[in-house]
Design a protein around this nucleic acid. Structure first.
Length: 426
RNA sequence: GGAGAGGUGGCUGAGUGGUCGAAAGCACCGGUCUUGAAAACCGGCGACGGUUUACCCCGUCCCAGGGUUCGAAUCCCUGCCUCUCCGCCA
């Protein structure tokens, strides 16, 4: 949510910034609502003040044994009027809140202009895509008889699921272990294990609701819960409705969770293989920081995700998302795109965002500045470190041999019982 | 699933219809004292919103949402959560 003061006092600047995303804020409608709100709130509060005064007078008169009938008569006339004003105000505030909850975050100044992913700007590139002396396969072909089974998953559940088995299942697990150990051991994150089902307040807090409900899997029945689309939701909401001390910050948390996405609206995209699944796993980095540190934290957090790729020896590039491609809640986002020989392209494997105070305001997540009295909003950030399914794909495709076997990257071998190669015919 | 108890400020915890936004303690902040610190003493100390240059003032908030009443932390209803006992269960 944006700062309501900013919406009132600098509506033009807000509108201009949002327009960069292609979001059109109806300035006039908002200004009209705001004017109504102001008038209605003032009269309502005046009525309330009068009611309170008279009620106190009744209490005193009663205590003194005086006649309270005249006072009762006066206050009874207020009742209907007040009830009316209160419910109108309530309704109006609800409408304004709904409107505010649907407005995306303001973009950081250095976010480049652009409409969609084609306008994202490359920042850096790491590693050289390997040149093969044979025609490299993609992970689907490589996994065909080696432990990636899409047909069985389709029978068990449906499309966009996979069954992994044997060494590939273990490699997938090894990746998770490796990433968790790296982030906890070298990057200073605390490992968290969190619920995979969340309530609507949490989803509103991170910005998945009210606008993106169709992307979620929602439970039927009495529980109004949804499957998490990312660990960002439960982990960030750890600080919802709390006031943190300055020395609690920064909070750096890492969690390995499954992620569930309906992928509504992406029918026909990436239908082959493991790139876009309804269920995948991810190691997620989340930071809760003091506002003045979020810019720097965004860079280091992205660096932590990059370190995973570097240690795995996977070529990648880092891009900054353009205005039109930056997510609803984000001020600024870097994507890491890993090289996939099977697609002959760089594909997203991590997304690292700075949300500023946008999520914090929705969550009422605050901290106390040691020199200032009032609680202030924290800043939140997160990034994939990394998406496991896609990392498995990247390892398979980048480390494949002509005979279809796959070398195990050195850093993963300890997690594979020392195995240096899998899917070997011999 | 059954029975019972309870959810009050950063924390503990009093408060069962009328100046209660709420006693007290802890924590925290300022001051006195001290070479310094501690202790002691004095004072301050909730959040959000409206109005305002500011002070003031006003409103809302005692889990959430409804209701009763001139007036609700206090009474009623619904939901959520916590604890205890029993049952069941990985």
């Amino acid at each position: 949510m944006l700062d309501p003061q900013l919406l009132r006092n600098d509506l033009d600047a807000v509108t201009r910034n949002l327009a960069r995303r292609g979001y059109q804020l109806d300035k006039q409608a908002f200004a009209d609502l705001e004017q109504q709100r102001k008038a209605l709130q003032v009269t309502t509060q005046e009525l309330q003040a009068k009611r309170n005064r008279l009620s106190r007078a009744i209490g005193q008169a009663k205590a003194n044994g005086e006649d309270i009938e005249p006072l009762l008569a006066e206050v009874s006339r207020l009742g209907e009027q007040l009830k009316q004003a209160e419910s109108e105000l309530h309704e109006l505030q609800g409408r304004m809140n709904d409107l505010a909850m649907g407005i995306p975050n303001l973009l950081a100044d250095d976010v480049p202009d652009g409409r969609d992913e084609d306008d994202n700007v490359e920042v850096t590139r790491w590693g050289e895509p390997r040149t093969f002396d044979f025609e490299p396969k993609d992970h689907v072909d490589l996994g065909e008889n080696a432990g990636l089974d899409f047909a069985t998953a389709a029978r068990i559940t449906g499309s966009r699921f996979v069954v992994m088995s044997g060494d590939l299942a273990r490699l997938h697990r090894a990746l998770a272990q490796f990433m968790l150990d790296l982030h906890t051991g070298e990057h200073g994150y605390t490992e968290m294990n969190v619920p995979f089902l969340v309530n609507d307040d949490s989803l509103r807090g991170t910005g998945n609701l009210p606008k993106f409900g169709e992307d979620l899997f929602r439970l039927e029945g009495d529980f109004g819960y949804s499957l998490i689309p990312t660990a960002e939701v439960p982990v960030t909401n750890i600080v919802r409705e709390s006031i943190l001390d300055a020395d609690d910050l920064p909070l750096k948390m890492v969690a390995h969770t499954p992620c569930f996405r309906s992928e509504a609206g992406s029918y026909g995209r990436d239908t082959r293989g493991m790139i876009r699944q309804h269920q995948f796993e991810k190691v997620e980095l989340v930071q809760i920081v003091q506002p003045e540190h979020s810019l720097a934290a965004h860079e280091t957090l992205t660096g932590h995700a990059e370190t995973v790729l570097q240690k795995l020896g996977l070529p990648y590039r880092k891009v900054i998302l353009c205005a039109g491609d930056t997510g609803f809640s984000s001020r600024k986002t870097y994507d890491l795109e890993v090289w996939l020989p099977g697609q002959n392209a760089y594909r997203e494997i991590s997304s690292c965002s700075n949300f500023g105070d946008f999520q914090a305001r929705r969550m009422k997540a605050r901290w106390r500045h040691p020199d200032r009295k009032k609680p202030e909003l924290v800043h939140t950030l997160n990034g994939s470190g990394l998406a496991l399914g896609r990392t498995l794909v990247a390892v398979m495709e980048n480390y494949q041999n002509a005979d279809g076997s796959i070398d195990v990257p050195a850093v993963l071998q300890p997690y594979m019982g020392g195995k240096a190669i899998i899917n070997s015919a011999t």
